[in-house]
């Protein structure tokens, strides 16, 4: 009995260890993400999976602007070689823990650079500038400017800060209006809610809204009055400045050779009232 019991305990431990190994990721460890790419390791890139035109899961891989930028940047980092990329969904609420835990190596997921986030994450880029805007139901005539959101119900997607620009005063916020926030897990959930009765407006970056408005085919309208500058950065594990610098070089090159402009045209070309980024945004510096 004793022998059997010990054996069972041991095999249980071995099995648990096996599960741990499955979850544990690479056997080989690299000091920085750049080294991993150059060393031929499998790269894990986090994007959104539920935002049309930016990162939307289609088949085995997501597709969209962020996804294409990610592919281009990674290719630059690898010196023109094709790199094996594993795509991982990184919702707004998961971005910081995913980077801190090493679940993903890089994040391209409509990730605005803010002072608050810089404490937890190192940002490469920005690679594009978005502007916060407001989307409402097509037949809603009561909201025509961002100021009209006073007393309205706006969406608060978990892990996102966009709502603060409406409800808080500067420096964190901007308009300091008295709006009610409605919790949601993601922007796609916000859009679902906007179609129903529990939400009056969705306010976030114009690029995100443009994608949703296009997908919903005329059910919603975007006001087209962007009132902030959101610098979309590339999320890197805090302290990995070497990767950050390499990423900045890559982004600059993609702007110089016209790739960034071309990708913006590909995903957002021809949308009325959308201000695309014309020139390379100045790099933020790595910290």
């Amino acid at each position: 009995m004793h022998m059997r019991r010990t054996g069972a305990v041991l095999s249980l431990a071995a099995l648990l260890g096996g599960v741990a190994a499955c979850g544990g990721g690479d056997d080989k460890s690299y000091a920085t993400v750049v080294e991993k790419i150059q060393g031929g390791g499998k790269l894990v890139v986090g994007t959104k999976w539920d935002q049309p035109s930016l990162g939307l899961k289609k088949g085995a891989e997501p597709e969209g602007f962020d996804v294409d930028v990610a592919k281009a940047v990674v290719k630059e980092l690898a010196g023109g070689k094709d790199v094996d990329i594993e795509w991982k969904e990184s919702a707004s609420s998961n971005r910081e823990p995913f980077l801190a835990n090493g679940t993903v190596d890089l994040i391209f997921a409509t990730y605005s650079i803010t002072e608050e986030r810089k404490k937890k994450v190192t940002f490469g880029g920005p690679y594009v500038i978005a502007h916060q805007d407001v989307m409402v139901r097509k037949d809603d005539t009561s909201i025509n400017t961002p100021q009209d959101l006073k007393g309205k119900k706006i969406c608060k997607a978990a892990g996102s800060n966009s709502y603060k620009r409406i409800t808080d005063p500067p420096p964190d916020g901007q308009l300091d209006l008295d709006a009610t926030t409605v919790d949601a897990a993601s922007y796609s959930e916000c859009v679902q809610k906007l179609g129903g009765s529990n939400l009056d407006a969705l306010t976030t970056d114009d690029l995100i809204l443009a994608g949703f408005a296009k997908q919903a085919g005329g059910n919603f309208k975007v006001l087209g009055q962007g009132f902030t500058n959101e610098k979309y950065g590339i999320g890197i594990k805090k302290g990995d400045t070497k990767t950050c610098e390499a990423v900045n070089t890559a982004v600059k090159k993609l702007w110089d050779n016209g790739t960034m402009k071309q990708l913006q045209e590909k995903w957002f070309g021809g949308i009325q009232g959308l201000k695309l980024t014309e020139t390379a945004p100045p790099a933020e510096g790595c910290a």
Partner: peptide, 20 residues
């Protein structure tokens, strides 16, 4: 889910946390 990375290093622990 939150403890695993600090004990076993970086990685994706969603499956591990659910199963354990």
């Amino acid at each position: 889910f939150y403890l695993a990375p600090s004990v076993m290093g970086g990685g994706d622990y969603a499956f591990f946390a659910v199963v354990l």
